[in-house]
Amino acid sequence: MNRSIEEQLLNPQPSTAAARARDFGIDLTLLIGRLNLTPEERLRELQRAMIEIETMRAGLQRQDGHLHESSRTDVATADSTSS
């Protein structure tokens, strides 16, 4: 990456789009790392993140399913013992 781009991201000049993005809440330091990658490397990173998050989501859903399953079993057990 062009060094001046890195400088612009770290210390954006007033009234530039980078300054507006920073003021909006964008973490410009994240862009430095991203701009140092090729487009293909960026997409490999994106794909890796997609897979990791989807794996995590699936794990949470399974865990949720187990919790529902065990709470149903608890209710069923309670029902059968209360009768």
Partner: peptide
């Protein structure tokens, strides 16, 4: 949009 506009300006 703000991030895209910053990227456009920088690149």
């Amino acid at each position: 949009l703000p991030e895209l506009e910053a990227l456009l300006e920088l690149t």
